[in-house]
Nucleic acid binder design. Structure first.
Lengths: 333, 333
DNA sequence: CTGAAAGCGCTAACAG
DNA sequence: CTGTTAGCGCTTTCAG
């Protein structure tokens, strides 16, 4: 009934617990005879022994857990990130705790410390810059996801520059010269991708204008769409870039509602890809980003910090991919 | 730098650690003078003391964590459940670990036990019945989500009977007499809602037929839609019931692709609601279910088990709600 | 009403 | 190459 302890393993193998412990932790300066080693290993499997992590944590201040912190569980943006993170964490023996974002990071870090959580991945799109720059002196390491802040190395990002290149090049190649981008002041992680987008636009001699949306939801996209398409405001604009998938879904619905035909009158392209993009009408052209890899690499980054190493900023090395579907076409002449 | 220990608190307050401990744990047979009590409480806040949960776990075999186990992180079905579960867990001082489903529940339970995870919530739609019935004799308690198995009390479900009543009544009131339901053999949790749906249909004298889909994804819905709508197979059917939202999204796209007009020629209604339902064309009529409450009540159920109590099956008491949108209308005469 | 003391299962420094 | 030992921070029984 009660779980097997290391003591029992040692007894069964006829050695001391310290031998078992050092074998399990691969202590480099342990030289063990193959015979006893085998006996210990045998005992471990025979008894189906599992180390008690609470005891280990008590001893080492090292609980073998990382936290994944999100501002909102219901926004599915991070599903793929967490999936990749979980898988990698599992491989290196860490468990993943999910938690809601508390703006007081110092307090959060202390809470985690007391729980045996060794580090945290932060989906901190809504945090003010000033809270984020002081990530270095928290009581546990934290890595910021998909957002860059000057002077901060504790970040892991996908390659928004490459993604923006893909999006702009696609539009420019189709002949678009005037693109509107949706923005959201509340989402600090947009700055990254919008900056990259605008910069690439300049080099392709594409003019960009900006419309402000009230968030990242489909509703925000819809409202913005109604506002823009409802008036006479489109002007020379022949394409719209949405920095988020749901924003594009809402925008598309607004286009439908106002009778603006996509892609005949207006092209729409979104950053990020998910199943839903294939099932809107028209299906959405998107730039697919390697979010699972982001999660995995963020775990590696965090683990390095936990092990007292000092990695530079992580940028995911898997290339973004353009998914051309029905929402983009050459502009009407 | 190092976290404050109970020792320091005791020292500061001029008492023994055991007093602090018993105060913190609200030991019933501790009578403490208000004066010392206050001194201790003061010391705790002054030093910003936080109990070391690893130490407590070691002592009590009780880590203050629960696991939320899903077959797949990227399917967003459980976002609201986990949100409600997390909130409730937080309120009672539990942390939530997320994990991927491993069909070997006994092994999982032992792994969790070694980690200080006190119990688990199981999104076990894909588990065979035989694995699920023996939930009672695992080394930690587990509660099955949204699925009922005869003889098993460790479940927490929303009220699919009420939800089905809502769906059928809506269709029947509109005048539909012949409804097709989408099913999926791989998803054992469908049986519950489909049974409820068919039973209510009988009492409203609505005929039901069944089409088998290959899963719960939009792609599955699309493929099924193409198969059904592409042929000459609709017959007398004037409405389709989808037991999952994404299935309906895909089905709608198939209707569009095959030129079947929704809701003029065919009504579509889905179980479960999410933002996307408002932004399809036409917008989807759905039955919204209280998934966050399900999460919260599942936590309560699990906590009762952890505390050695024996609750009966949990059924969420918040009523489902019909969200009438554009995808349902009276049948064409 | 409060203190002393043992020990949960494990790690790591040191001794043999 | 292996054993001894001293705790990590907390809970809990038993004495005062």
């Amino acid at each position: 009934m009660k779980p097997v302890t290391m003591r029992q393993v040692a007894q069964q193998a006829g050695v001391d617990v310290s031998v078992v412990s050092r074998l399990l932790n691969e202590d480099p300066r342990l030289s063990i005879s193959p015979a006893t080693r085998d006996r210990v290993l045998q005992a471990i499997t025979d008894l189906d022994y599992r180390p008690n992590l609470a005891a280990r944590a008590l001893r080492t201040n090292h609980g073998g857990m990382i936290a994944f912190v999100v501002p909102d569980f219901t926004s599915s943006v991070y599903a793929h990130v967490i999936s990749g993170a979980h898988q990698r964490a599992q491989e290196i023996g860490y468990a993943v705790v999910v938690d809601a974002l508390d703006p007081d990071l110092a307090r959060t870090a202390r809470r985690y410390r007391a729980r045996g959580i060794d580090g945290a991945l932060l989906a901190g799109a809504t945090l003010p810059d000033r809270d984020v720059v002081s990530l270095e002196d928290l009581s546990i390491p934290m890595v910021l996801l998909n957002r860059r802040v000057p002077g901060l190395t504790r970040t892991a990002c996908v390659d928004y520059a490459a993604a923006s290149r893909l999006a702009i090049d696609h539009l420019a190649d189709l002949g678009h010269r005037d693109v509107m981008v949706l923005s959201s002041p509340r989402n600090a992680d947009f700055t990254e991708r919008l900056k990259a987008f605008r910069s690439r636009a300049r080099s392709r001699r594409v003019t960009t204008s900006t419309a402000t949306a009230g968030g990242i939801s489909a509703q925000a996209g819809y409202d913005t769409g109604r506002r823009i398409l409802g008036g006479d405001g489109l002007g020379e604009v022949t394409a719209v870039f949405c920095p988020t998938l749901m924003l594009a879904v809402g925008f598309l619905a607004a286009a439908h509602a106002t009778g603006v035909r996509v892609p005949d009158e207006l092209s729409v392209i979104a950053m990020h890809d998910a199943e839903i993009a294939s099932f809107t009408t028209p299906a959405l052209t998107t730039v697919a980003l390697p979010m699972a890899e982001l999660g995995a690499l963020a775990i590696d980054h965090l683990r390095a910090l936990v092990d007292q190493r000092h990695p530079g900023p992580t940028v995911v090395d898997v290339a973004p991919r353009l998914e051309v579907r029905g929402s983009t076409a050459p502009p009407r002449t």
